[in-house]
Nucleic acid binder design. Structure first.
Lengths: 153, 153
DNA sequence: GCAATCGTTTAGTATTTACAAAACGTTAGT
DNA sequence: ACTAACGTTTTGTAAATACTAAACGATTGC
């Protein structure tokens, strides 16, 4: 049962897991990402990750798919046949942030509908929605460029 | 049991609830926020909200506290004594986004620790962490000003 | 002083969720 | 063809979570 992993690496992996939980994502997904950030061959198979994280293949498989959907990892052509290798995806964090901001920007639509509902009401009552609406319009317009810039910096 | 709420308002409220779920937050919290975005007196008591949302006072109470922690709503001096009134907080969305980006920026620290772990490894292996580290440094430095600007626009 | 009305807190429940174990299909090596 | 090694999918389970109902403390009006 001894797999002589440095304690610091275990902590690093677990901390990213905890971070993921705070962001509303499964801890195991965070652990996988953590492992893929410091793994010595950057590409690791499902089985590799299962061993390293003491987790079942099934949960690794499912969480790896989730990470792919979020754009944080990717499959790579496997050196050994019949094995799927995953690695951290360059630019992954940017993709993830873009998705989140896209969600935010989606509120733009909803607040627009809200403003229609309030059309007949006196002006002060409309203020709340107008504030939200204008903000998300700005987010929608400005952030793509900002992320672009941040990514290249 | 007839409380004659326009169907569009019910939809609006529920849609924000669904949005909250996508963002990893309880649906009821989203419903409360939705209600406070279109309520005719902008300020509503726990009981008011419970009636309007057909929800128990306890969950309203708990979720209202959560929304306050996120900076999205606030308590206001109650016109009627012994009643807590809540309303949408001006600038609330900005505060919420700031919190989220703060969480992101926190990864700056973790990746720094990760880089220490990888100190002895060959350069290509360090690339992943360096990318993340640099990105979050940028986020940490740039975003406060950007949010400031977006808010005032 | 007593009943009524708040909001909070606690206790309880039902749903969801994260995970593991097992079954499965596929491919490669023998 | 048979076995072994993958990853995926399905099924089962334990834990977390969102919610309700009930108990509670505080305050007001009668």
């Amino acid at each position: 049962m001894d797999d002589h992993q440095p304690i610091e690496e275990i902590h690093f992996i677990e901390d990213i897991g905890l971070y993921f939980e705070q962001m509303g994502l499964p801890r195991m997904a965070g652990r996988i990402l953590g492992a893929l950030l410091i793994s010595d061959p950057p590409s690791q198979s499902i089985t590799d990750l299962g061993v390293r994280l003491h987790a079942s293949k099934s949960s690794i498989s499912i969480m790896a798919r989730l990470l792919m959907e979020r754009g944080l990892i990717e499959r790579v052509a496997s050196p050994i046949p019949r094995r799927d290798y995953y690695r951290f995806k360059p630019g992954g964090w940017i993709i993830y942030m873009r998705q989140w901001l896209g969600l935010m920007a989606g509120l733009h639509q909803i607040t627009e509908r809200g403003m229609l509902l309030m059309a007949d009401k006196p002006e002060p009552l409309k203020l709340r929605l107008k504030e939200a609406h204008d903000l998300f319009s700005n987010v929608e317009q400005e952030f793509p460029a900002i992320l672009q810039k941040i990514a290249k910096q």
